[in-house]
């Protein structure tokens, strides 16, 4: 195996995307809305397509805004269908996001000659290609450096999520664990909900190009769920989730370029292996949690129960 600067950028970009996702995803998992991440990340497709058709350029701000808007629309539509249409929440989610996704597919297919937007790219992302698209940046100590554009975008989103979570930590915690109390105290649970959904949409859109929508779902949910198995404290959970996400990016990329070689292949998709590695982490944590539970129940004297 050979490791280039290229690989370092891939890991860093993947880690930032995964970390940003894990931050907001923790709240999705705690609020039992994990599938919302799935719905939003799928529904983003038509937003990208329309914005792309209008501006004709990829990765412009319009595209970003269009996709994030559709993501938010998915959250609003699901809520509306659930409330007004009296539909089961999962079902309303499924209806909204499949409709948007289908719309996106048709739009892209109809404009195939003008649009160079591959739906598969949305699904898998192109993490391996992100280091090719760089921006020259003057840094205080390093002088002039070529930094991948995706890295900068994801850095911004990661910081945004970090700040948002730090500033609204109290409100988010309250809405997660005691929505009724939050409502009584006058924190708009609704405002927090849509604020969170906006962050999810923005994170998803920023991540999709680099890592694809499937990895986004994996990173939103799996590190947070893994951390949930290991701790009961929200702050610890957030920290653990982000660390697990970083680790998944590093291990995932490493596995992507080494493991296939053992079986005689060249390499494989980093996004895919990253998602798969988070699954392994989860499996490990589940094993550890059940072991600990078993040891605890065995060692606890009956009298203290």
């Amino acid at each position: 195996m050979e490791w280039y600067a290229f690989d370092t950028w891939i890991v860093l970009t993947g880690a930032l995307s995964a970390g940003a996702c894990a931050l907001v995803g923790s709240f999705l998992v705690l609020r039992r809305m994990s599938m919302m991440g799935d719905a939003i990340s799928h529904a983003v497709l038509p937003g990208l397509a329309v914005a792309f058709l209008i501006t004709g350029a990829r990765s412009s701000w319009v595209m970003f805004a269009g996709a994030a808007a559709i993501g938010l629309l998915t959250a609003v539509g699901t809520e509306w269908l659930h409330r007004k249409g009296r539909m089961d929440e999962g079902a309303s989610m499924g209806i909204v996001f499949t409709t948007f996704f289908a719309l996106g597919l048709v739009l892209i297919a109809r404009a195939a000659d003008r649009v160079d937007l591959d739906p598969e790219c949305v699904l898998y992302g192109a993490l391996e290609l992100t280091p090719l698209d760089t921006v020259a940046l003057a840094l205080p100590f390093f002088g002039e450096a070529d930094v991948p554009r995706a890295f900068l975008v994801l850095l911004a989103v990661f910081v945004l999520n970090l700040v948002a979570v730090a500033v609204f930590f109290k409100e988010l915690r309250l809405v997660c664990f005691d929505p009724a109390l939050a409502a009584t105290l006058g924190f708009g649970a609704k405002r927090v909900h849509y604020g969170l959904m906006t962050l999810v949409a923005v994170t998803t859109v920023a991540s999709f190009e680099a890592v694809g929508s499937i990895l986004v779902i994996a990173m939103l949910i799996v590190p947070a769920a893994t951390a949930r198995l290991l701790t009961d404290r929200l702050s610890t959970l957030l920290l653990l989730a982000v660390l697990l996400a970083f680790a998944a990016a590093a291990v995932g990329h490493f596995a992507a370029i080494t493991v296939p070689v053992w079986f005689g292949f060249a390499d494989t998709s980093t996004a895919g292996t990253m998602a798969f590695v988070t699954g392994l982490f989860f499996l490990g944590a589940a094993g550890y949690a059940s072991l600990r539970r078993r040891l605890q129940t065995r060692s606890t004297p009956i009298a203290t129960l």
């Binding site: 996004a271 699954g279 989860f282």
Partner: peptide, 19 residues
């Protein structure tokens, strides 16, 4: 919900890696 999300994304990620 998280159980479904985990299985969905991890399985699919595995599929992408195999692919």
């Amino acid at each position: 919900d998280a159980a479904m999300g985990i299985v969905l994304s991890v399985f699919f990620g595995g599929g992408v890696a195999l692919f």
